[in-house]
Amino acid sequence: MIEARSIIKSFGKQSVLAGVSFVIEAGQSVVVLGRSGSGKSVLLKHLVGLMEPDSGEVLVGGQPLNRMTERQLLEVRRKFGMLFQGAALFDSLSVGENIGFAMRRERKLTVDEINRRIAEMLELVDLPGIQNKKPSELSGGMKKRVGLARAIAHRPEVLLYDEPTTGLDPVGADSIDQLMERVCEQLKVTSIIVTHDMRTARRLGRRILLLRDGKIFLDSPASVVFESKDPYVHNFVNGIANPKEVGLL
């Protein structure tokens, strides 16, 4: 279980999160929606202890993250896998070394077992046999797939996705959506997906958190959000800009 309690976070004078609270139970698939700059990625980084809140706290399995040292946090992070917006693959390592990174560092598996697991993960993300390629040789979509393979290779309990389809063409985005769905079903993990891609949200979100002005504006099942008559929610999910905002009036 992951719990956020009244998280407040500012960068200088800019307030990003202004008291965010929620609970995510094990096995849930939650989509966090919000406009660009609404603090979605910042919120995600708080959940895995990559950022510390100015006030409030995050609890993972009942343990408060902000009372832990960086080395204690490393132990908690073994439960997590995270797909970054730009995939964040290590440039200096091959695809195989990227995927097997956490397993090699843990030194619990033999080299053969690690290589077998790398091959399995690459099969799962439909990229078999590219272990020896370097990240610079991959397209944006392939990098995301390898990033996902790396995130799930050490069998995490919670998967965090930061804008998984941003920057991909519609077909590439759809294939990543299918892949996330498959991973979610096969591995039975808790999924928290930060996105502003409505197709991803419709497909994967069983529960939607909508961020607005640094707070949770709406926390509802997906069906409620997509049928909402609230003008802000309706405009957001249908991609309708407020004319005042674009300076037309």
């Binding site: 980084k45 895995v48 202890g49 995130a151």
Partner: peptide, 10 residues
């Protein structure tokens, strides 16, 4: 974000 990725990989 490769440093953040390292940290998430414990």
């Amino acid at each position: 974000e490769q440093i953040d990725a390292l940290r998430t990989l414990a």
